[in-house]
């Protein structure tokens, strides 16, 4: 690590690293934001992950695996921050949630609420609802999930990790990954159902929402 006057190879390496980080910045930040829900925390997680990645760059055997390797570091960085921050209340919630997983409420399915098999000539109401939901509806429904559920779901559905990988990242049994995922999906779908109903989407038309003027977006 004694590269005080930065020989050419080292400079080149730094430049490539910088370019890659720049290219991946949106996805790094977007992922961190869904995991943390907090813009400041998300920036800190990204910055710390990038620092860790640089210091461990020698461990990366195959440069073409840089992206996957970097995102794994991002997730690990998030997990350690989360563990440090987690207050007792969260732990209790999580404990309660992980107990009695099997006899929890019956899974909720948005599709089953909406699908009308005998009304095919009407078009498909479930698809209209899905397409009518706004990006903010989905973001806020996702953010409203209890931490443990949201994190598991983001890792599987957004990041595409396998159950085994999530089990390793979070250091929880495979069965817990499965049950958290089931609960997360059920809660998310129930919450989207509520949002769809509030927006009047269930009957096919979105109610105009009260919007403040001049709020960009």
């Amino acid at each position: 690590m004694a590269e005080s006057d930065r020989p050419q190879g080292a400079e080149e390496r730094r430049r490539i690293f910088e370019r890659e980080i720049d290219r991946l910045a949106d996805r790094l930040y977007g992922t961190a934001l869904r995991l943390t829900r907090d813009p400041e925390d998300a920036e800190d997680v990204v910055a710390e992950a990038v620092t860790r990645a640089w210091s461990k760059l020698d461990e990366l055997r195959h440069p073409d695996q840089f992206e996957g390797w970097l995102f794994r570091i991002l997730n690990n960085t998030f997990v350690s921050l989360w563990r440090r921050r987690r207050c007792r209340q969260d732990r209790e919630t999580e404990l309660n949630l992980s107990e009695g997983e099997e006899d929890g409420p019956a899974p909720f399915s948005l599709f089953e609420q909406l699908h009308q098999p005998f009304l095919l000539w009407w078009g498909t109401p479930e698809k209209q609802v899905l397409d009518g939901l706004l990006r903010e509806d989905i973001q806020s429904a996702l953010d409203a999930l209890p931490d443990a559920f949201r994190v598991t779901m983001v890792m599987v559905e957004v990041e595409g990790y396998t159950y085994q990988e999530v089990s390793d990242l979070l250091d929880i049994p495979l069965g817990t990954v499965r049950s958290r995922l089931n609960r997360a999906r059920s809660l998310l779908q129930a919450s989207l159902w509520e949002r769809a109903r509030e927006a009047g989407l269930v009957h096919g038309v979105r109610k105009p929402r009260a919007r403040s003027n001049g709020g960009g977006g």
Partner: peptide, 18 residues
Amino acid sequence: RIDQAAETRAPEALRRRL
């Protein structure tokens, strides 16, 4: 839709910081 909801642009401040 969930996947799209996760897409966000990195703030310019973060890019500068990096």
